[in-house]
Design a protein around this nucleic acid. Structure first.
Lengths: 389, 389
DNA sequence: CATGTTTGTTGATTGGGTGAACTTACGACA
DNA sequence: TGTCGTAAGTTCACCCAATCAACAAACATG
């Protein structure tokens, strides 16, 4: 590693500290926390300020001594655009370094069994509107990331399969070649992996390791370990929905028998509760509140199956917390007790540690947010590559 | 990061290159591979040589130009000691930086349902002999690591449970306080995680991500991802034996129903083949060769269950290869086809990628070797901390 | 208004990597 | 046998980034 690399490393450390600190830190705070000297930090902060990545707040008076100048992530200077295609909406969202949404467009509709190229065309249109808005506001676009609920093979696709959408083998190269997506780095990734990043940020400072479960028709998951999303060899980790619950159970669309999806996926839940498959989850919770035995049994079965699957996972990767997202958020009150029952008997380390099950704190837009954040993380990892000379 | 840290980082980079290079590299080779200048590499190599971590071979003549001086890991200067307690043997093995075994003592016996403190006493005795031998040979002992087939809680225990040995809640602090273990850093870790390290080294340059499965009475596993062993929150990852194969299957010693261990663990296999539980696996392979239908059915069932469990795991963590160790090595020919059958139907990404199943290339002593190597890895990560001034 | 305190900056210094020139040691070739 | 070309390793002046101590700035305190 060269000396230049050392400087860029420290630049990254300082920027990360500004972004992740709970309270806006002063130069002296950063020096204390990182072990660098105030002189070094000052020099690095100056570079970050001139690169419009960091901004100064008015000096904070009130304490004895020279007032500290609080440093915050710059607002509305650099932004990343997260795109998302999901079963019931499309969206484009620009997020700046401070984590604020700078521009956004969403379209609610049903995209099951939709035509990929038509839908991707809509996504490009939304992205173009958002990017145009950023241009007008003088916000630099550092990159675009598309969240898809399926197996994405590599940064530019193809999308191998997205069962929820009914898509299969969709080539994305043409998509990324269109303006305005060709103007900046652009890529695609799995929805659950990206949503987990948003959840991680939301829980910053509390936990850094958990399994994020994103349920809809299919059930995706992402393992967050020590603040990093575990991607696996091809970025295809987290196919929780195709965990085998009963090896001789009902046949799944994937061809195997007894996949979790057939017990705890949305379609399976609605069917078991004798509700229309395409109706919103709200109807299931309504039925539960009305005291429907079928609905209660459906949720019980789903919770049991989810408990079996999560138990396996916890035994295999020793993760201390599970965060339930997607349709499980609304069902959590009824679902979680059944999950915990199963976990208690199945987790081997149970006598000495506890696996907690929580509900996601991010909304349905988590993937879009996470997609944008992934790109912002790259700025933090290497600010020099993004113009911090 | 300070300048001193930069230097120590580069020292680590150079040492790692010497250790991991297929052919002994010259200073110039290292400079070319790392991007450092020859001058810098020379200075770092001199430090490593005076710290007795690296040695020079005679100049390699034959090509035009000044002959290069090949650099190799130093032999018999620094060594780490790996200790192991397993169902049928105890061992202590000292390995030097070159990966060679410098001293070794093993004891074969049956340690099922053994008394922990008596056995640990034997281990200390073996370790003392090995360390005394190292002392006599002038080899510095950099650390000791004990491999145990169970849940080890933290670097110094306690050992929460080791079903194969019949141990439970064994305090290890007294063990580590005894001489000669108190002389250098000492710790304990899970057997499968350590054996996976040995397997990783054996496959250096070929694969860096795989799931290592270590089967005996219980079935442990370790996920190796990109050259790193994934430990999980407490280091308790890899409890593959307690993956649920059939949620209403046979009751396991752990209390849950249908654990893999009850299908594919050694006792389960022997019992299904109507063979004495304590007899060696050899008897099962003999029965298979004799054409025993019971034995074939037992292995078929085990392979099927293992396939279900591994399928789940592959779907969840996207690992491209499985390496079977322990008793599966002898059974591989009969077992693997059944495993592959199940994987083919259950792995979601199967149409686009292939999960390969291979047999371990390390012997029964893999954990001991891996334990020693883990400590040697720490030298590589921070040579300055081990006397490379 | 003087004092103490903390922040941020300045300039000389330290130290680690760099680059070019140099030395060394070999094969190739006449 | 001697010269030349080549590549490895070393030397040394230099550059650059972090450091340290001194200093200036800006506030609270009394």
């Amino acid at each position: 590693m060269s000396q230049k690399a050392l400087r860029e490393h420290n630049l990254s450390v300082v920027l990360r500290h500004v972004l992740e600190c709970a309270e806006p830190p002063s130069r002296a705070d950063i020096a204390g926390a990182t072990g660098l000297t105030r002189a070094t930090v000052s020099a690095l902060v100056d570079r970050l300020i001139s690169a419009r990545m960091v901004a100064e707040l008015p000096p904070a008076t009130g304490r004895v001594g020279r007032p500290a100048v609080p440093l915050v992530p710059a607002r509305r200077t650099l932004a990343a655009v997260g795109l998302e295609v999901n079963v019931d909406y499309l969206g484009a969202r620009a997020v700046d370094l401070s984590g604020r949404v700078v521009a956004e467009r969403t379209v609610a509709a049903d995209f099951r069994r939709s035509e990929p190229h038509a839908v991707l065309g809509q996504v490009v249109a939304l992205a173009a509107e958002v990017i145009a808005e950023l241009d007008r506001a003088g916000v630099a676009v550092v990159g675009v990331c598309l969240a898809l609920p399926g197996l994405v093979d590599g940064a530019h696709g193809p999308l191998r399969m997205a069962p929820n959408l009914g898509w299969r083998d969709v080539d994305l190269t043409a998509f990324f070649r269109q303006p305005p997506l060709d103007r900046q780095p652009a890529r695609a990734a799995n929805e659950a992996n990206l949503a987990a990043r948003a959840e991680l940020r939301r829980r910053r400072g509390e936990v850094s390791s958990f399994l994020y479960v994103s349920a809809d028709v299919g059930i995706g998951a992402a393992l967050v370990s020590d603040g990093d999303v575990f991607l696996g060899q091809h970025g295809w980790s987290g196919e929780l929905g195709h965990t085998c619950v009963e090896p001789r159970g009902p046949r799944c669309a994937c061809g195997a028998l007894g996949c979790l999806e057939q017990y705890a996926g949305k379609d399976a839940l609605m069917r078991a509760a004798r509700l229309p498959v395409d109706s919103p989850v709200q109807e299931l919770t309504d039925a539960l509140e009305r005291g429907s035995r079928l609905a209660a049994a459906a949720v019980r079965r789903a919770g049991w199956a989810l408990g079996v699957a999560l138990g396996n996972f916890v035994n295999l990767v020793d993760v201390p917390q599970v965060v339930l997202g997607g349709i499980y958020v609304e069902l959590a009150n009824q679902l979680v007790p059944h999950v915990l029952d199963e976990l208690r008997t199945r987790v081997l380390s149970r006598p000495w540690t506890d696996v907690t099950v929580e509900v996601s704190r991010t909304g349905q837009d988590a993937a879009m947010l996470g997609a944008a954040m992934t790109l912002l993380t790259e700025i933090v990892d290497d600010p020099a590559a993004f113009g911090a000379a």
